Measured scan of single mutants.
Amino acid sequence: KVTYHVPNEEFARKLYKKAVDANLNVEIRVENGQFIIHIE
Rank of each mutant, 00 (worst) to 15 (best):
K18G: 06
N8T: 09
E10V: 03
D21T: 07
D21Q: 12
D21H: 07
P7L: 14
N23I: 15
Q34N: 10
E31V: 11
I37K: 00
V30F: 14
H38C: 12
E27F: 11
I28W: 05
G33R: 01
A12F: 12
K18D: 12
V26K: 00
K14A: 12
E31R: 06
I37Y: 01
N23Y: 14
V2R: 11
P7V: 14
V26Q: 00
P7A: 14
V20D: 02
H5A: 09
K14S: 08
K18S: 11
A22N: 08
F35W: 15
L24G: 01
R13H: 06
H38Y: 14
V20S: 04
I39R: 00
P7G: 13
A22Y: 11
E31Y: 07
A19D: 02
P7I: 14
Y4G: 06
K14E: 14
V6F: 10
L24K: 03
K14F: 08
T3L: 09
A19T: 02
N32E: 05
F11C: 15
H5V: 15
I36A: 02
P7M: 14
I37P: 00
V6L: 08
T3D: 08
N25Q: 12
I37F: 02
E10K: 03
N8D: 12
R29Q: 07
N32M: 05
N25A: 09
E10L: 04
I39G: 00
K17F: 09
E40L: 11
N23D: 04
D21F: 10
K14G: 03
N25L: 11
E40D: 10
V30K: 07
I36W: 05
D21C: 09
A19V: 06
H5P: 07
K1C: 15
L15W: 04
K18Y: 13
F35K: 00
I39M: 03
L24I: 05
E27G: 03
K17P: 08
A12P: 02
L24V: 03
L15I: 11
G33V: 10
E27R: 07
F11L: 14
V30R: 05
N23L: 14
V2L: 10
A22F: 14
A19E: 03
N32G: 06
N32V: 05
I28D: 00
I39D: 00
Q34D: 03
F11G: 05
A22R: 05
E31M: 07
I36P: 00
